[in-house]
Design a protein around this nucleic acid. Structure first.
Lengths: 65, 65
DNA sequence: TAAAAATGTAAAACGCGCTTTACAATTTTA
DNA sequence: TAAAATTGTAAAGCGCGTTTTACATTTTTA
């Protein structure tokens, strides 16, 4: 699954570390999400979407079946 | 985390088994989600929300921090 | 261009999301 | 009310989401 985290983060001009602290995870988690290593949990997806003031559906790209 | 899965399922008058098959998980997974045993993954949350034609934010209830 | 800041890689460890199977309890229907 | 359908419980197992720590690489700034 793809996401627009890096895109929104750069738009806000904040670092991975800033975002990590804002949504209460480690920087490693942000790196892994941005680089598509794995998907976020539902709770974390919500916190990040909320941080950027967008919906989960806008931030994460769900491929068609 | 709470959700409105059971609520939407009853509204549509389908069984847990029907829903499970529709979103491609086992019935046990639907039972566990409806009874709050654990949260759905982001992908599954999306499939269920899509099935009911609602947003993830409408289907899942994210408590305030 | 050197130093500092930001980003990335690696690997081990833990808990949770989901499956599988089998059976029990409850609700609906004939 | 008996049979059938639906919902629930239990427990073991696997893989993924996240943390932690340490170090390497790339980018930005003075």
């Amino acid at each position: 699954m793809q996401n627009r985290i890096k895109e929104y983060r750069k738009q806000q001009k904040i670092t991975q570390d800033d975002l990590a602290k804002a949504v209460d995870v480690t920087r490693q988690t942000i790196i892994s999400l941005e680089n598509g290593k794995y998907d976020a949990s539902l709770k974390l997806a919500h916190r990040i979407a909320k941080y950027f003031s967008v919906s989960i559906e806008e931030l994460f790209i769900f491929e068609e079946d």
